[in-house]
Amino acid sequence: MARFIIRCFAFVAFAAIFSAALLILWGELMPRKLRPNLPHPVQLYGFLDTRLKEADASSPVDVLFLGSSKAYRGFDTRIWASQGISSFNLGSTGQTPMQSELLLARYLHRLQPRLVVIEVDPVPFMDEGVESSLDFLANGPIDREAWRMATRINHLKTWNALVFGAWQQFTGRRNPLPKPQRQGPNSYVPGGFTQHDPENYQPAGYLPPMQCDPRPEQLQAFLRAVRMLDEESTPFVLVTAPVTDAFARSWIDDERLWSLLAPGHVHFRMQDAAMYSDSLHFYDRGHLNQNGVELFNRALIDSLGSRGLLRPFGDRNQAPS
């Protein structure tokens, strides 16, 4: 029996090495359709590669934005710069608290923000964080934080992406493609914002109710991120970006999530902070068009200003390069 157990361990080790080698070979040679568990979405959506490269070279800023697509499509750093506030937008597609935690660990010291704006929405808290992790592992560095995120997510696709990403990084062939500034209707704006071409939304009317059921691991990641900010004495606020009226009303029980996230913290729920029109200020049910972005950012700056949260920003009034 001992021999059987030893051989089992030996086979597991052999299979791990052999499978990793095949995974790399498969990832290098096969088209995406033939590698369903290794999507490796390089520069596929959200400009994360471009954004992270810019963040790596960026100097300290007044405000740092984190969150999902509502963040990188919602917080326009140019508007903040016009108010004398430097900022950087580290939002990414489907970013969950697990990825926000990773970004804070990587960039908090580099960007030294005086205020962190965390965009909060029920969806990322209900998500495993796998899709977003693939984005990070395909477009960001494979470092200790990436390993930590993969361990916490513990999903097959994430592990595959980590192994393949580590291989590409080791062989110096990480993201060799030219960095596009424009993809479809989306344009990357230096500072991390992504602008969508002018488009108006056709309101869908009724949307089925959605139960807000946050995952414990995302709540824990959020709390770890908050603790990190507290340890660095970096103030932060939570912001819920506006969405179309029907979409906002479709959530059931989101109050419970806010009560879990926001005790003792400032939480701006911007749905009613300005007069948004579904057809004039949105291009889909969850994202503002540029008219809406203008309205939202100015309302948020006013709200932050009225709470005295923007007061100390005097000496870093240049926009990020």
């Binding site: 052999f18 095949l22 995974l23 498969w26 568990n37 595959n160």
Partner: peptide, 18 residues
């Protein structure tokens, strides 16, 4: 022989529904 079994493990890793 082990390579064949490991290749099956790889097929599972690459193609299983997650």
């Amino acid at each position: 022989r082990w390579a064949i079994y490991a290749a099956l493990c790889f097929a599972i890793i690459m193609f299983m529904r997650t």
